[in-house]
Structures are given as C-alpha cells and as structure tokens.
C-alpha cells in the first residue's frame, strides 16, 4: 500500500485524469469564446482546407474543358429551359410580393421577408472529422463580421448556426446535430407549432411537442417559426415524412426530411444582422418608455 501511495507516476496519471474530466465538464456546455490556442490551430487548418476546395474547383473546370460539345449543348439547353421557367415564376412572385407589401403596410404588420437581411456568402471548406458531431467549417470568420449564434442558410433552406469563430473561419453546427433545436411551424396551416431536433444523421430530423389535435400530415412543409434567438421566420426546414403519437398520448412527433442536402452543400449564406422579434419588441418598448 505504501509503495502504491509513493508511486509518483500514478499520482500524475490520477491528476491528469481528474483534470481532463474537469475540462470535459467545463467545455460541455456552449462556450462563448474559444481560446487563443484553438483559434491558432483552426487558422492553421483554414488555408489547407480552402486549398482543397480550390483544387476541386480547378479540377471541375479542367473536366468541363474536356467534356464533349454535345454534352455541353445538352446542359445549356436544359439550363436555358429552366431559366425561362424561373423568369416566369419570378414575375408572378414579384407581383405577389408588391401586393403583400401593400397589404402588410395597410395592416401594420412587420416585414418578415428575407431580403431585408444582410448576408455574407461563404464556402464550405471542411466537415466534422469524426462521426459524433454534425458540423462544418466555412471560410469566413471574425474578419468578415461573422459572430457566434448567427443563422446559416442556403437557397434550399436552413443549414444551422455559427458555433464558434476564428479569424478566417467559423464552425457551423448543422440542424441535424443532436444539440440543435429550432422553433418550427407548418407552412400550410401556420397553426401547429413544434420544435425540430437533430437526430445525428444526415437524412432526418424530428419535430416534437406537436399537440394531438394538430392537422399535421405527411407532405407538409416545415418552416422556422421565428420564436428563437437565432433564426428568422419562414426559412425552409424540411418536409414531413411520417407522423406518430408519442407514448404519453398527448403529443405527436413527426419525422422530417431536411430540405438541404448536407453532403452536397458547397456554399452558404450567413445572416449577419438578424435581431429576434422579441428583442426588437423590447427595444421598441424601451424607446417608448424613454420617449414617454
């Protein structure tokens, strides 16, 4: 026993073990800032990871150079046809948008359209190096005005939220990550509210806390409700695959297929000037109090 107590290596191992457990515990909740060492490490990786993306892009242009003329013509034809359809759809939507604006101003409603937000485009340069986390790295960081907590979107829908930032890069937690929860509503009826959670895999999310009397059904579109600190209202999350009654018998849950294909995502947009409606209301109230 005395030999055991006098073994200094054993004490060292024990101290390191306890110290590491303390470190795990201290970094298990969301961190406001990462340390200088972590920032330096990430900034060392950023040029390498950006280099891979650039190499792939260059390889793509070399492939295009060697692609047959017939293939290219087919691609151009299909893109032109798609373009015509989109121009038509755009015309209709522009008219609807103007009408919506007029009606909103008549009713005194707040403008919730996405074009009022300032966005920064970024390239996806890396993804999680292990299977436990679902995140990715983008090539814009604090130098481009990116901050922790900002929403990240793509033309297909909501991607996730900025988790931590270094000078030239940022880590983004995806909505499929188990820790992320997003306030959501059904686009068609606007009545049913719930929370969409990640399941840790790339092709499904779960919407929970749906009241049993909800009319939710397979095929419904799920969008953000705007009742969260990070995400603006009306961003596409996914489509309902199936609905089931939870074991308590009071609430429903739904399996949701994400709108975004996270494996193929190459570029994203970070919303840099979003303020949640609750905060905006608080600011208005404070102004009124000061004014009054």
């Amino acid at each position: 026993m005395r030999k055991f107590i006098k073994n200094k290596y054993l004490w060292l191992v024990l101290i390191v073990f306890i110290g590491t457990l303390w470190l795990i515990n201290n970094t298990s909740s969301e961190r406001n800032n990462i340390t200088l060492l972590e920032k330096m490490l990430r900034d060392a990786y950023t040029p390498l990871q950006s280099g891979v993306v650039e190499f792939k892009e260059n390889l793509g242009s070399v492939n295009a150079f060697f692609a047959s003329k017939q293939q290219m013509q087919q691609q151009i034809d299909s893109l032109e046809a798609e373009n015509q359809q989109l121009i038509m759809a755009n015309q209709i939507l522009r008219e609807d948008k103007m009408e919506l604006r007029r009606l909103r101003s008549l009713l005194g409603f707040q403008d919730i359209s996405l074009d009022k937000y300032q966005m920064v485009g970024a390239r996806v340069i890396a993804r999680s190096p292990n299977n436990w986390y679902r995140n990715m790295v983008i090539d814009k960081g604090s130098d481009s005005g990116i901050k922790k907590g900002m929403a990240v979107i793509s033309p297909q829908g909501l991607v996730g939220r900025v988790a931590s930032v270094s000078r030239d890069s940022a880590h983004v937690d995806l909505i499929i990550h188990r820790e992320i929860a997003v306030g959501a509503i059904i686009q068609e009826n606007r009545e049913t509210q719930g929370i969409v959670e990640g399941l840790g895999n790339n092709n499904s999310l779960r919407m929970v806390n749906i009241p049993y009397y909800s009319t939710i059904k397979a095929g419904n579109n799920i969008v953000t409700s705007g009742l969260s600190e990070s995400y603006p209202k009306g961003l596409d999350i996914g489509r309902v695959k199936e609905v089931e009654l939870q074991p308590d018998g009071i609430l429903l849950s739904a399996l949701v297929e994400p709108s975004v294909d996270f494996d193929k995502l190459e570029e994203v947009l970070v919303i840099v000037n979003y303020k949640p409606e609750l905060l905006l209301n608080d600011e208005v109230n404070t102004d009124e109090e000061i004014g009054g």
Binding site: V16, T20, R31, E38, Y45, A163
Partner: peptide, 21 residues
Amino acid sequence: GFLCGLLEDLYMGRFIGVNAL
C-alpha cells in the same frame, strides 16, 4: 494517444478531453 486526442478535441472546440482520454 492522449496528446493526439487532445489535438482533435482542441480542433473541435467542445467536450475537450473526451478524445484525449
């Protein structure tokens, strides 16, 4: 193993020490 795991943990920035241990 501890040092390699720590490097991975520092890169990930969360639950630092899990991979190290």
